[in-house]
Design a protein around this nucleic acid. Sequence first.
DNA 1: AGAGTGATCATG
DNA 2: ATGATCACTCTC
Length: 198
Amino acid sequence: MESRLSRGWLERDPVTVARELLGRTLVSTLGGVRTSGRIVETEAYLGAPDRAAHTFGGRRTERNRSMWERAGTGYVYFVYGMHHCMNVVAGAEGEPVAVLVRALEPREGAEAMYERRSAASRPEELCSGPAKLCQALAITLDQDGCDLVGGEQLYLIDSRPDVSAAIARGPRIGVDYAGEWAAEPLRFWLAGNPHVSR
DNA sequence: AGAGTGATCATG
DNA sequence: ATGATCACTCTC
């Protein structure tokens, strides 16, 4: 029996959510196939004060619309003309903060993941990056604004199979443009896990 | 280390 | 309208 992550659990500050999301499972039933993976790497985006966030300065645009929705909403965006990245909206209602899911350890549906990701030849290449995992789980802009708490296509479950792994913390990836915010240790990962990006 | 790729956003 | 940018990935 699957136990969903509740909305209240996600309605906390994004740093706490980013850290505690590690070890939980993201499930996709997109394309009629069940694929899932344990979250092994995340990044927190802190909203208006955070120069690296899409909602820096309180910006409200068409792209970041769902980042302003209530916690538990999926925020999916498209970058570099070819990649999708997926976030879990966190925080109090109306607070534009989110957690980027950066890497998963594949759990179910590896076969479908290999089909969707032609570049991958080993399990560690399936979901070891924010755009890789979206490709592996078939997440696209269609999922932007989806309900990760009550939805059926894409959702989070509570399982934490590996309680022993240590949590590491460091600066976020690819946010060099963000000045002093680039150095903030807002990236979290399970130390030593081979499915972490890079 | 460099290219690919096109939506998005701020300027005007 | 236009141009620079980009919370990345792959291949060299």
